[in-house]
Design a protein around this nucleic acid. Structure first.
Length: 783
DNA sequence: AACTAATACTTTTTT
DNA sequence: AGTATTAGTT
């Protein structure tokens, strides 16, 4: 042990023994491996990026060039050289997923779990951590709560009401977005430009922003923007605190640097003024979050911002075949403001990028659905196929189609787990139990489920709370002692207060998961969903169960709540073999063998709104989006466009995207005369297949047959229930088919309906709400 | 306070 | 077209 410690600064002898693997410090464990081991896996540029440890470094890492590998190896290298302890490395990412991935991969490199990297996390998670330690310096208590967007809007609404501002003309959302924008740019209320203040309520925006900040402090709360902006203020106003962190962080690493906003940039720069060992990894060609405050300029200006900076370009692409890479490069070359990289590959040319025009979005879904079935027949794995759309409304056509085909798919992205109504309601209950002064949460659930405490009651509570300057909960406690409320609400409110008091009393004696269940049960919250027989109610109950399961990973209720707002994201269950459906934005950082890119229509892929709002800059960002989409593909990419699209009710005719014409012709193949397929009434599309040979071999049919409880061959693989957004959508009917025309059925996605026609295992159902749909029988249950 | 009818809104998403 | 929120009614 001591021998290893003594050898810290030197390279370890190769014959270093594998003793004390559990107890040895990470750096020591890392040293057991010969240094060359991990460095040899890198190409020269990557290796240079890993070994250039001192001074500012910008790694321009094009798509698929091993960006994460560089970051993780660099961390391992620093540790292995003994240049820093794990706690002296700051590594920031944008998403929890990226942070987890990095932690995992560093762990793999140095052979063990990285318990000791306390400063590897998202900007926000690290921001909270620092702010809790110095809360008083930014006018908060260390126990401050982090507001989610819902709470934020609610608070702003109250503010607008108090100021008598017409919410119709000046929606709370707009102000919330403006405040968010200012925070992203590092602007505190007093610094908001006069002109921008006039964009809301005749120039009152700045004052409202200031009032909002005051309310936050009163509530002992911070919103997401504050986690950065207040942190920045902390560093700016307290030199001693800043210096402490400057000294602590010997090395800084930043992932996805092209996505940083001004506040993040200023924060990073302050910290980097310590020893200057900052390494930013990014790709200006993948900056797609400009609308959210990201500044491409940050990456373009790196050399000026960090004097003496080195820039290393990673241009060897290990992901895509030649044609795909060439098509993507040709496209992105049309952008003006870029640092410029030339991606190249040593791999094969592969197949050209296919382009196919469709007459409308339904045909688009049908064409892609057929292609996927074809691929599946050829033995492709569904999980290696992705459909990347520009806007989420495009997903509907695909979901409908896949449900009809019985093709398993999963939606990635979508509303995040903790953002869902039921999860927020449940956590609001837990929050109030722990902290009755949390007005926003209390207000959220005071009448959920309905307990007769509506607007009128809430209004008088607010009045009393304001008059006495006490939290709502306290006001409620006082009010039930008075005659102000009518008997019924008074009783109801008294019961609620008593219940919360009782739950609070149980915190120390009861296990936190049991307590959570008890709260949801006794409050009537679970009962509320059980009583509702809607397609969503069941999945909401499932989600609540999932929430309880998730809680088990924490020691206390408080510990759980601390993490829930920042860290909890949709659990994307891996493993099950499904087609991936997501937006281009959420596809960044992922890769698939086969990628379908539907909706390359003028007005949708260069999105009209983006063009209108940001002109050329908007167009370039849209082009980067297209580039991100193409570069997700390893072997096969297909672009489609639809001439007609039913957007919001109206049929709109669109031209093919200008980006299609910008693709270098040598690497593109236009799929022609396939246009004939799918013409004619869509409901016959499966019927026509009955006569085509091979119908009984289509994967959809086989899947469906394999799923039939009886009469299927025992060896047939059983399909897992289809899930959407992580929730159970269809479980196979246990007691077999035997459904008859005219029967009432229930479908998890479409709701209730009546069977109109039966064709083998495929049912045509007239749904009460969703209209006529074709579904596979195993997706419905009898009612 | 709860229900129903009318009206507005619809890019992308993290934390 | 569809939903989500709001205003008006019971």
């Amino acid at each position: 042990m001591s021998k290893i410690r003594a050898a810290k600064a030197a390279l370890p002898p190769p014959e270093c023994e594998e003793e004390n693997a559990e107890t040895a410090p990470i750096s020591a464990r890392a040293m057991r491996r010969p240094a060359a081991h991990y460095l040899e896996a890198l190409n020269p540029e990557q290796r240079e990026a890993v070994e250039t440890l001192d001074g500012p470094l910008l790694v321009l890492a094009g798509a698929g060039t091993g960006k994460t590998r560089v970051l993780t190896t660099r961390i391992a290298h620093i540790l292995s050289l003994g240049r820093a302890r794990p706690s002296q490395i700051l590594a920031v990412t944008f998403t929890n997923k990226a942070a987890r991935e990095m932690k995992h991969r560093v762990g793999e490199l140095i052979g063990g779990v990285v318990e000791g990297m306390p400063w590897l996390g998202t900007f926000h998670a690290i921001g909270v951590k620092i702010m809790r330690r110095h809360a008083e310096l930014v006018d908060l208590k260390p126990s401050f709560t982090v507001l989610d967007t819902d709470d934020q809007i609610r608070l702003i609404k109250q503010l607008l009401q108090a100021e008598n501002i017409d919410e119709k003309r000046w929606p709370a959302r707009l102000l919330a977005a403006m405040i968010d924008g200012w925070k992203n740019r590092g602007l505190r209320p007093e610094r908001v430009p006069e002109g921008e203040s006039f964009a809301f309520a005749n120039g009152r925006a700045r004052d409202l922003y200031a009032a909002y900040q005051r309310r936050l402090k009163e509530l002992n709360a911070a919103d997401f923007g504050d986690l950065l902006l207040e942190n920045l203020r902390l560093f700016q106003e307290h030199q001693d605190v800043l210096e402490k962190y400057q000294q602590r962080f010997l090395f800084m690493l930043v992932d996805e640097y092209q996505d940083t906003n001004v506040a993040q940039y200023l924060w990073l720069r302050l910290l980097a003024q310590g020893n200057g060992n900052i390494c930013c990894v990014g790709d200006d060609d993948q900056s797609i979050y400009g609308w959210r405050g990201a500044e491409v300029d940050n990456i373009l200006r790196f050399e000026t911002d960090f004097p003496g900076a080195r820039i290393i370009r990673l241009e060897r692409n290990y992901r895509s075949t030649g044609h795909i890479l060439a098509a993507a490069s040709g496209l992105i070359a049309h952008n003006k403001g870029r640092l410029g990289k030339t991606l190249r590959t040593d791999g094969s040319e592969g197949e050209k990028v296919t382009v196919e025009g469709c007459c409308d979005d339904e045909e688009e879904a049908r064409v892609i659905g057929e292609d996927i079935e074809q691929l599946q027949r050829q033995g492709h794995v569904l999980g290696e196929i992705a459909i990347l759309v520009r806007a989420s409304f495009q997903m509907r056509a695909f979901e409908d189609r896949f449900i009809t085909l019985g093709l398993p798919y999963r939606v990635i992205g979508g509303p995040r787990f903790y953002e869902r109504q039921e999860i927020r309601d449940a956590t609001a209950y837990f929050d109030v139990t722990l902290n009755p002064a949390n007005d926003l949460k209390f207000e959220r659930i005071i009448n959920t489920p309905r307990r007769g405490l509506g607007e009128a009651t809430l209004k008088s509570l607010h009045q009393l709370a304001r008059a006495q300057s006490v939290p709502l909960f306290q006001a409620a406690r006082l009010m039930i002692e008075t005659e102000e409320l009518k008997p019924r609400p008074r009783k109801s409110l008294a019961d609620l207060i008593a219940a919360f008091d009782r739950w609070r009393g149980l915190i120390d004696t009861m296990g936190h998961t049991e307590l959570a269940e008890l709260i949801l049960d006794e409050s009537g919250y679970t009962g509320m969903w059980q009583a509702e027989r809607s397609p969503q109610a069941q999945s909401k109950l499932e989600n609540l169960k999932e929430l309880i399961r998730f809680m088990e990973e924490f020691d206390t209720l408080a510990g759980f709540l601390e993490h829930v707002a920042l860290v909890m994201d949709a659990q994307t269950e891996e493993g099950a073999d499904r087609v991936n459906l997501m937006t281009l934005h959420s596809a960044k950082g992922l890769e698939f063998d086969t990628v379908f890119l539907p909706g390359w229509d003028e007005g949708l892929l260069p999105h009209q709104r983006s063009l209108d709002e940001s002109g050329t800059a908007g167009l370039e960002e849209e082009r980067r989006l297209a580039h991100v989409g193409l570069t997700r593909a390893r072997k096969f990419a297909k672009i489609t466009f639809a001439q007609n699209r039913r957007n919001h009710g109206m049929w709109q005719t669109a031209l093919p995207s200008r980006f299609i014409d910008e693709l270098p012709i040598d690497h593109v193949e236009v799929a022609e005369d396939k246009g004939l397929r799918g013409y004619g009434p869509s409901r016959f599309d499966s019927a026509e297949n009955v006569f085509a040979d091979g119908f009984y071999e289509t994967p959809g049919w086989q899947r469906a047959r394999a799923n039939r409880p009886r009469g299927s061959s025992p060896s047939a693989p059983r399909r897992e229930p289809l899930t959407i957004e992580g929730t159970l959508v269809a479980a196979s009917t246990a007691d077999g088919a035997g459904l008859a025309i005219g029967e009432r059925i229930f479908h998890q996605k479409f709701g209730y309906g009546r069977i109109a026609q039966i064709d083998g295992n495929k049912l045509t159902v007239d749904f009460d709400k969703a209209g006529q749909k074709k579904v596979v029988d195993s997706f419905v249950e009898r009612v």
